[in-house]
Design a binder for these strands. Structure first.
Lengths: 131, 131
DNA sequence: GAGCGCCGTGAGAATGGTTCTCGGTAGGAT
DNA sequence: ATCCTACCGAGAACCATTCTCACGGCGCTC
């Protein structure tokens, strides 16, 4: 039996309100900042659930897990600003095909893949070149 | 001034002797198993150096950093068995081009990318279907 | 070959993100 | 309203990694 608690909703909302990827810790801090008395463990549990159910994507950077609300049910990848965390969903059909083919060529089965593109978003590029 | 210590050599050798990706901890354990009195911190330092100098590749999986000896100076990606860790170097020229193009389309500069393909290697596939 | 300066090492402590524990609380079915 | 039980919260536990600092060995110089 699955329950709808206001804590889980708060996490889902806070995640949806964010532009790019956020760490669990940052999300917890921001929830606390808005007066929600949510436990850190609960944030981790909610994020893990959301990621498991496909409502959020996660990636690991510098030892931290980052999360982002994502269009559910669709397979896609991200273009992520390594400075501010802003992320753009991108489809990568050619890469999907390539991954499957490469795996098959080497006799690998059940192919998965991790594809992320990092860079500096337009704003951060401008700021960097101005500095 | 850069020094050649037997510890660094031991780490390089142990890494070169391994088939796929290994964790720093596992490498340390295996070095200790062969009688080398190497410190854990030293293994971490050596691996970080090797990765920095391009003699090793690293990836993060399940909160652990995994390392592998790699052909130096070449840009490539990996096809990794998610069961036994065996890895095959693969070149991904079409993906390189795609990543640059996608980044440019969205105004992102200085593109990086993370591309890894996971799957079950032939041996593990056979073992899995036999079970 | 001997001396010397200083980098690399090692053991253990510190760090920091994540997970676990456990008593208490509240969702939802009846 | 009541009961069952999944969920929550606080803090402790965990674990990979990094830091600290005294010591030993590497490589340069003579």
């Amino acid at each position: 039996m699955k329950r709808n608690t206001w804590q889980r909703e708060a996490v889902r909302d806070a995640l949806g309100r964010t532009e790019g990827f956020v760490s669990a810790q940052a999300l917890h801090a921001s929830l606390r900042g808005t007066g929600s008395e949510v436990g850190l463990a609960t944030v981790y549990r909610a994020l893990a659930d959301l990621a498991h159910e496909g409502e959020a994507d996660s990636l690991v950077q510098e030892g931290e897990s980052l999360y982002r609300a994502c269009t559910p049910g669709s397979h896609h990848h991200h273009l992520i600003c390594r400075n501010c965390g802003t992320a753009v969903e991108i489809s990568a059909d050619p890469v999907e095909a390539w991954a499957r083919q490469v795996a098959a060529e080497h006799g690998f089965t059940e192919p998965n893949h991790v594809v992320d593109v990092f860079g500096l978003c337009p704003e951060c590029s401008a700021a960097a070149s101005a500095r």
